[in-house]
């Protein structure tokens, strides 16, 4: 049985941003926030997403920090398409109230 975490404290908020190109100034194509609270799930929604940022740079201006940049190893076959966009993972260490 896992220990019961405290109801508040500094925790790591995560943000997966899939940008159009590896540039932080390019538009975001995918947006997945991960809040460090119990039972949180990021969901696909039917409503048109209303994202607070248009670019990764917008998120940096708002205090997010990049913890992983996109992998840029060149594909073996440059005719293939794979995943959508380039993945940046960002964090914010913030006081979080949980429950």
């Amino acid at each position: 049985m896992s220990p019961t975490p405290p109801n508040s404290g500094v925790r790591q908020r995560l943000l997966y941003l899939h940008a159009r190109t590896p540039s932080v100034f390019s538009e975001i194509l995918g947006y997945t926030p991960v809040e460090p609270v119990r039972d949180y799930r990021a969901e696909i929604t039917a409503d048109v997403p209303d994202w607070p940022y248009n670019t990764v740079h917008d998120a940096l201006v708002d205090g997010w920090q990049i913890v992983q940049f996109p992998h840029l190893q060149a594909p073996i076959n440059d005719r293939d398409l794979d995943v959508v966009g380039y993945e940046f993972i960002l964090q914010k260490l913030e006081e979080v109230q949980d429950g």
Binding site: G30, T32, I44, T45, P49, D82, V83, V84, E87
Partner: peptide, 18 residues
């Protein structure tokens, strides 16, 4: 036409233009 195994999609939720 994307060669993207499903596991590689796990960090996406909403996508522009869905």
């Amino acid at each position: 036409f994307r060669n993207a195994p499903t596991d590689r999609m796990a960090t996406y939720t909403n996508i522009h233009g869905q």
